[in-house]
Design a protein around this nucleic acid. Structure first.
Lengths: 193, 193
DNA sequence: GTTGACAAACTAGCAATGCTAGAATAAATG
DNA sequence: CATTTATTCTAGCATTGCTAGTTTGTCAAC
């Protein structure tokens, strides 16, 4: 009987619509506007229905964030061109990372700022959460002995650049200079800026 | 007549008590527990009184954050010992910065994550907001052509390390190795880790 | 077909939040 | 003492996340 299959399919579809609505509203009006009531309105069901899909609001943010990690990983991988030198690749990945952060501030917020209930560095950690790290590790590897630690540090630098600029604490006009600095630092040359 | 002086003095004192209470509660129970009602309870006045001191809750967070910037600046300056080499100074400041972030997570959150209404890079920017940057610039200067940009990048790296570790996305056990990496990067040597 | 069990969805409401209008009180002024 | 002005409070609004309890729909057993 395909009835129960249809039902779970429809149910999954409804879950998807919740996540899509959350993302859409967040990107247009900010996460503060993503309320359970508004999401319920959007999917045309009552509020308690949302709690049969997600334990709480944070889990909805987490579902959006998970999408974001997948997309970021794809973008970072696409930024690595085989024809580039190792140094250029570092710069390209760094630029792609920051472009992502500034083009999708709400998504970046979900991924790195808001509580999401996502579990990192665990056995049940979803693949999306590891892939972005993997892409960064790929371009860092040629310059590092301890690739994991070096990638963590590279990632931290990018995250810090994104956050400080997003909060208006460093000068937007000097973004590319800062990326150059990071690239030169990673590739072990003295800053010539 | 010293009466009005006494009144403004008492009023300022009450304002101070609000900020102290906010900080105390935040450090003990987190910022979510810092509610207007709880603060009103703490200072033994009704809620509307708080709004004669601060426009809204964010401004209270901002007042605590401002204290934090002052203290961070002091700590960073104290970390610079005249007897150290330039490279050691970079490492010492980096370590002091991260120690601050992890020892006072609520304070760090107020300074860098929560909305505060604080204005950076403006003519009316309070001195506290500039001093921490100044301390970092001091130790970066020997290694940089463009000191401001290099300091921004250094700061971003530290901020990213603090945030990613605070959120459990990088391994706490490798903190000192990451600091070493940053120090070596700033001082322009190849990573030997 | 009717009935009864089960699942799905809804209505209504709780407790908490930031914030504010308007009343009450205290203090200063004539 | 009367009046105006400044303080402070009471009470309440609108919004939030979340949930208890009820209604509605579905489907199998008789």
């Amino acid at each position: 009987m395909g009835i129960s299959e249809r039902k779970t399919r429809e149910r999954d579809e409804r879950g998807r619509r919740i996540v899509v609505a959350a993302r859409t509203i967040a990107e247009r009006d900010g996460w503060a506007s993503v309320t359970i009531r508004r999401l319920a309105d959007e999917i045309e069901y009552s509020q308690p229905v949302l709690y049969s899909h997600f334990q709480n609001r944070d889990e909805i943010v987490g579902a959006v964030a998970l999408e974001g990690f997948g997309e970021l990983a794809t973008i970072l991988r696409a930024a690595i061109r085989p024809s580039s030198t190792p140094g250029e690749s570092v710069e390209d990945v760094a630029t792609a990372y920051l472009d992502f952060a500034f083009a999708r501030p709400a998504m970046y917020e979900a991924m790195f700022i808001l509580p999401t209930g996502l579990r990192f560095a665990r056995s049940d950690t979803p693949a999306q959460l590891r892939e972005g790290f993997g892409a960064m590790a790929t371009v860092i590897a040629p310059f590092a002995q301890d690739v994991d630690t070096a990638t963590e540090t590279f990632w931290a630098a990018l995250h810090g650049l994104a956050e400080l600029e997003r909060h208006g604490r460093i000068r937007p006009a000097f973004r590319s200079q800062r990326i150059t600095l990071i690239m030169q630092m990673v590739s072990g040359q003295l800053s010539q800026l």
